[in-house]
Design a protein around this nucleic acid. Structure first.
Lengths: 113, 113
DNA sequence: TTTGTATATTGACACGTATAAATATTTAAA
DNA sequence: TTTAAATATTTATACGTGTCAATATACAAA
């Protein structure tokens, strides 16, 4: 029985960083909203319900690993997801949860998206 | 300009929990190995390079949210990924990183998987 | 330049969690 | 029942990070 080769450390780090970016309620909500349409910082603050510095802090992190891109328009800055894989990541997660819910009836998962 | 409706809190929590499970080098490596083939705890310890209690701790977490399933064979317990979406999540993350690498040449990402 | 608005950065704090050592549990074999 | 091997649990510790308040910066209008 041969053991499969582990993922090389640098790729592993990159993958983990990507998942870390989505592993927080605030950032996940931000990303979800941005998969729907581009939004500026203030709109995100109201929609997500956290302070402006907190939203900016998260956006900086998301932008540093290229999960979102930005576009200036006067004093405002509009953010949007950087590529389609970001939305796909979300979809796969939701599908997994759907799989779990179907196979384990009393799993805590409220099903309206 | 209408603001999209945020993801409902319970679904958001579930999604975030799923990403949290992959947002750690040790767990991500474990999941990656298990997408290749089922393995027992000891084999995972050696392959990942952390202590047995640590591996068991992570496996318990991964199992609690149904990312992995287990099968007993004598004194050993073999773990494997619970459904195909788990592997797909990984693939989407790698594709995103590939997209980043292509569009931003000097992005720190070593490209052999 | 001055004023106002939008966004970014800094600093401090509280909380979650990854880790290993020690211990407990489970199972099979003697 | 005793012994050994595999896995799980408990405990304590150290580190990372999400949050907001205060402040700084960028831009546009007057």
């Amino acid at each position: 029985m041969n053991i499969p080769q582990p993922l090389n450390p640098q790729v592993l780090d990159s993958v983990t960083q990507t998942f870390k970016a989505l592993a927080d309620n605030t950032r996940a909500q931000i990303i979800y909203l941005l998969t729907q349409q581009e939004m500026n910082v203030n709109a995100l603050c109201e929609a997500v319900g956290v302070s402006q510095p907190t939203v900016s802090h998260h956006l900086a992190k998301l932008h540093s690993i290229r999960l979102v891109k930005r576009r200036r328009e006067g004093t405002q800055i509009f953010y949007s997801v950087d590529d389609s894989h970001v939305g796909n990541l979300f979809k796969e997660a939701l599908w997994h949860l759907d799989h779990v819910r179907k196979n384990i009836p009393d799993f805590q998962f409220d099903h309206e998206v």
